[in-house]
Design a protein around this nucleic acid. Structure first.
Lengths: 338, 338
DNA sequence: CGAAGTTACGGATGCCGTAATGATG
DNA sequence: CATCATTACGGCATCCGTAACTTCG
């Protein structure tokens, strides 16, 4: 018989993973829990069947994707997306209300914003196992993009991943936290210049809208004296309490009851608002409880809008869809929820 | 080890083909050149792996698709489209200018319209093997939809197939063909009523815009006396020459030189114009010579427009794209070509 | 020499085809 | 009883993992 060698899904997985692993077959094999030689051979078989090289070799290394490979990769990824959609659909129909939900997000979200949402969620979907992954915005994006998590929720650096569909959830701003005996606690309305005069304690760069903060100072030609940074507000508050400096945190992080020993001053007149978004892989099948989660988290995102976004290939169209939404501010969400 | 049973492309092919064959596994097996038991078993395995029934069984028959099956089918079809795109891409890169081009069309097109186009095409692409499939409009659609042909070119009944992307090529109308000694040959401008008074020879219903013709008579409350119908204009002309009646054929079918023994009268004032379109499977990868073929056939369709249409999922958007085109009349195409 | 890809080989999985069985109208 | 799906079974391809080889920096 002829060596018909009909294309296999595995082979497409291999192609995709090799590309994802920067053309390193060994890494790809590792990531897919299989052997290097197996991957290598399947790739060669696929290339033989297609009659085209997908990867260009220089010596014993894969140097780059060929032109054909570039295009094939895009289609292979699409195939894999569809396949995982099929699996998700099957789960959906096997049991609408059971499954898993992986959320990758930052400390701010998981510590302050998500608890009430997740509380309601597990109340309604007790048989959905929740996994919370915490990390930097970049890590979060990767977790969502590679399927470790279903959703990414964060404020910064998520738009870069073209594989992710991002939807706006709410605008928020900062709160200034002061010890009760701090000089600024007495003053009237705060200015950027006031802040620049004191040591500051805030988020590490890349976290929770830190870049917006820097912009504001820069616009006024001021250099903030940031003496301490942390990735999470709990740590920041601790150091504010020690008198190390003035805390600038997301307003979500201020808890009136537990932080009553600190003075909190709204700083929305000082900084441009930041936008927190939720994202998921393009073309991913959203299980119904996933959609409900989004609705709980961001009530202005309705099932219809979400599904349209999930299906729309074109980034421009998606933007148009989303532009019609009225995105709430976090403070307003709170009053509604209570 | 667990029986992991990873989903196979074959299984998706089976699902798709069974659905296409009206839920008849035997037919599907036949169509895919394999055995019924094999197909049956693979389907069960897939269903087992997914944990969902795709097909609902009533006794020993597949009665319908389950809800899950409906959705899964759509994704399976998409996977298969992508896979065939990958194959086409490979061919494309293996040799840009070699391959095959299957065109399914009617007699009118293949006999009168296509010859000059195909002449130019094989001049430019001598290493592309051309296959011309002839059939009724419905057959043509099926040939294109199931991949036997790459293109469908026809006037009627192509819009129904949601799997096909149709693009308008040209408007055309009818010519009246008369023997030189026919009474109508002497008269001035012809009317529908004139035609109704004589026996007519024209296309069989369902071919080459026949329905437009019937409409015109019906609008005037007239019943045409169609004494003979054929699927092709050559046959019609033959019978006109025998004096059997007045011929009504597509204007493309009138050849001034070869039909000089007949009187030809333009009938565009009597009938509404018909539109000939070219179509291909949605999402199909168009090889570059295929795009050039379309450009040769319908110069107003540029590569950019064609590719946009091929990629656009949404039917509405496609309509919008096409609405901006100026579709020429066949007669005008001729003068440009010469 | 270390890291990475390819070749060689053996075992086990699993696909497919033939034949037999069961169910349905 | 004819049609169609499922079960049973055996052969054969092929996929994968281990081990040895090669090539490049």
């Amino acid at each position: 018989m002829m060596t018909g060698h009909t294309m296999k899904l595995q082979q497409l997985r291999f192609v995709s993973e090799i590309a994802k692993q920067h053309l390193n077959i060994s890494r790809a094999a590792l990531a897919l829990h299989t052997s290097q030689p197996g991957v290598s051979k399947q790739i060669r078989q696929l290339e033989e069947e297609l009659g085209v090289e997908i990867f260009a070799r220089s010596g014993k290394h894969l140097s780059h994707l060929t032109a054909a490979g570039e295009t094939i990769l895009a289609h292979a990824d699409e195939v894999l997306r569809q396949v995982s959609a099929i699996k998700a659909i099957a789960l959906e129909h096997a049991d609408k209300n059971a499954g898993t939900l992986g959320i990758a997000t930052t400390h701010t979200q998981s510590r302050y914003v998500l608890p009430p949402v997740i509380g309601r969620f597990i109340g309604k979907f007790p048989r959905v196992a929740l996994q919370l992954h915490q990390g930097s915005p970049v890590q979060i994006s990767e977790l969502a993009a590679n399927g470790t998590a279903d959703f990414a929720i964060a404020t910064e650096a998520l738009e870069q991943f073209s594989d992710l569909v991002m939807m706006p959830c709410y605008y928020w701003n900062r709160a200034i936290l002061l010890p009760r005996d701090h000089p600024l606690a007495a003053g009237s309305t705060l200015s950027i210049a006031d802040l620049a005069r004191f040591p500051l304690v805030t988020y590490t760069f890349g976290f929770t809208g830190r870049s917006r903060l820097d912009e504001a100072f820069k616009q006024h030609g001021l250099a903030p004296n940031v003496v301490f940074t942390a990735a999470d507000a709990d740590v920041i508050k601790t150091y504010v309490r020690l008198g190390l400096g003035v805390g600038i945190v997301a307003d979500m992080a201020h808890e009136a009851d537990k932080d009553s020993d600190l003075i909190a001053i709204d700083a929305s007149h000082l900084f441009a608002p930041s936008l927190t978004s939720i994202g998921f892989r393009r073309g991913m099948h959203l299980r119904s409880y996933m959609i409900e989660f989004i609705e709980m988290f961001a009530p202005h995102l309705s099932r219809g809008v979400i599904e349209s976004c999930a299906l729309t290939q074109n980034t421009q169209e998606r933007k148009a869809l989303l532009a019609e939404l009225t995105v709430p501010r976090y403070a307003d969400l709170l009053t509604v929820a209570d």
